[in-house]
Design a protein around this nucleic acid. Structure first.
Length: 216
DNA sequence: TTATGGATTAGCT
DNA sequence: GCTAATCCATAAA
């Protein structure tokens, strides 16, 4: 099964500029596949993981988006400048990470649904409370929006509105030179409105994509 | 002030 | 396959 390779010691990760996010969430979502989410804090191992599954949420015209009911205290980040983290708490248990898109004043974001762990795997397992008994457990670390947030220690208090374009932030997004190939588009998962729009983007045949494997 | 249900997950049948 | 867990933003009153 084809897997992307971890970066070597020499591989550089460079941050994505503000302009990367200042466009339609559908374009940002597609472009984010293959990019790298980085968590780094002094005194802790650096965590990195590749983006393999995302969903686009549009503006106030998208009934499934949090922006649908207009700007509120909770969702104000997605109306703000592009490239910032929108973190919300769901089902009493889980945080979900998004990045704001579009120019300031216009709503739109991309939800991170699954990552492929690259470095800091032991730390992610500890954060998830999982014993790593082999590679078959790896997807349990970061396959699913709630899981990846837990693996990266993402909470609303800590990370909401964090600038994901800046390597000075403890959480940011970068490009390590990997080029995504084989992108598939499907309807979004877990929503009850606007369910039939193709707004979920995945790396085909990547084992870290969330959800059941469709028999073929 | 109270009620409702959700961009989920884990554990059980 | 089914559902409990568990919080809080939002809507309704």
């Amino acid at each position: 099964m084809p897997q992307s390779q971890p970066p070597t010691n020499r591989s550089q990760i460079h941050s994505l500029g503000r302009e990367f996010f200042a466009r339609d969430p559908r374009r940002v979502a597609r472009a984010l596949l293959g990019k790298v989410l980085v968590r780094e804090e002094t005194g802790s191992a650096r965590l990195t993981a590749r983006v393999v599954e995302v969903e686009a949420y549009l503006g106030e015209e998208d009934p499934a988006a949090h922006a649908a009911s207009g700007r509120t205290a909770r969702n104000s980040v997605i109306f703000g400048p592009p490239g910032h983290a929108y973190v919300y708490f769901i089902y009493g248990n889980h945080y979900c990470l998004n990045v704001s898109c579009e120019r300031e004043g216009k709503a739109g974001c991309v939800l991170f649904r699954a990552l492929e762990p690259l470095s800091g795997i032991e730390e992610m397992a500890r954060a998830r409370g999982i014993e790593l008994s082999g590679p078959q457990n790896l997807p349990k670390l970061t396959s699913g929006p709630g899981r990846l947030s837990e693996a990266f220690g993402i909470t609303r208090t800590r990370d909401n509105d964090c600038d994901l374009t800046s390597p000075a932030s403890s959480l940011w997004l970068g490009d390590d030179g990997y080029r995504a190939r084989g992108i598939a588009v499907t309807p979004r998962i877990g929503i009850t409105k606007a369910m039939n729009h193709p707004l979920r983007y995945i790396l085909e045949r990547n084992r870290f994509v969330s959800g059941k494997i469709k028999p073929k």
